[in-house]
Design a protein around this nucleic acid. Structure first.
Lengths: 180, 180
DNA sequence: TCATAAGCGAACAATTTGTTCATTATCGAA
DNA sequence: TTCGATAATGAACAAATTGTTCGCTTATGA
């Protein structure tokens, strides 16, 4: 990617997250982002069609980091490691989430949080869908999957507001209520 | 309240929910609501300061219905009924939610859903905060409360998308993963 | 009946959005 | 280093939206 494009993209992301710390997503205008990023109006629109798309791009960037290991693991069709250690995996993801904490906190603060949570859950569905063979008792699998996904996503949201806990703490909290 | 006000308010709510079935919350302009409700521009602003406030008012109206029994129970300081039957209460609330299903489904569909969920959780915090004395094991109470509140709220959101289940089904699903 | 209160809608300024286009600057491959 | 390709710039534009004001009309209910 062209250096200029990278620079612009970075400037926009930084302006955007900076603004999100001060005001609500819906109260931020594209113009404000442009001014904060110190770029030309048409440049912004050359990169992102809308503010929503900018948010999506930012979330994608974050999740690419958070789920990087799990995503690349897919490539190696290594059945011996198929029996994955879900606890370790979760803790690992929590560590990555902690790295992006400032960004995530900004995004989570308002309506943008809903979109973040939605995208987040899309990734979590993939992560968890292999984990619920046994629990089919008398509750629909679909319900259980949604339950686990939401449970974890909300745990993370809660964590972002409570800095005092470590990734291990949160992992423990999460599994204390989960029938894995 | 003046008949005319009631009429206007009702027209706005109906126009709004009608529009929510067709398009996204953020893509609905105040002008569209005004046109759909067939009222004067200044009349809308005499009733609601912003679109967000309209949404809040609509949610409040719904929750007033959904939680009506529990809210009024507060008045009677009847300690004998203090040992409340949480399962019955939940099922009861689910019945009320089912009554408002069309409205709730419209609201839940997009960003407005985030606000609905937020307000919903405010009520649920009150409902659940008395229920978690014992589970303090090695997880913070605050975490447990958030967990239960989110769990129930997300269960309801899931239910709204899956019409085939009864209130009793959902109650059972909910309690099957909850350590009450 | 009649004073009060609500609804009406045109007109307003201000802001925002998304696009276009001619011009300038920067990049990176040869 | 050169030079064609690509990106950035910002002014200008139309269209839509927002929230308010104000003089007028209509409905309410005591």
């Amino acid at each position: 990617m062209d250096r200029r494009q990278k620079k612009t993209r970075k400037a926009v992301f930084e302006a955007f997250t900076g603004l999100l710390e001060k005001k609500t997503y819906s109260n931020i205008s594209v113009q404000e982002i442009i001014d904060a990023a110190n770029i030309g109006r048409s440049t912004f629109y050359a990169h992102f069609e809308t503010k929503d798309e900018l948010l999506r791009a930012l979330c994608t960037e974050i999740f690419e980091h958070v789920f990087s290991d799990d995503l690349h693991k897919e490539d190696t069709h290594d059945f011996s490691s198929k029996k994955k250690d879900i606890v370790g995996e979760i803790t690992h993801i929590l560590y990555h989430l902690n790295d992006s904490r400032p960004y995530i906190k900004s995004i989570l603060s308002c309506e943008s949080g809903e979109m973040f949570m939605q995208y987040f859950k899309e990734y979590l569905v993939q992560l968890f869908s292999g984990e619920l063979e046994k629990h089919s008792a008398d509750v629909p699998q679909e319900y259980m999957l949604n339950h686990m996904v939401c449970d974890f996503a909300e745990t993370v949201r809660w964590w972002m507001k409570h800095e005092q806990y470590s990734a291990e703490d949160i992992s423990r909290f999460f599994f204390s209520t989960t029938p894995f």
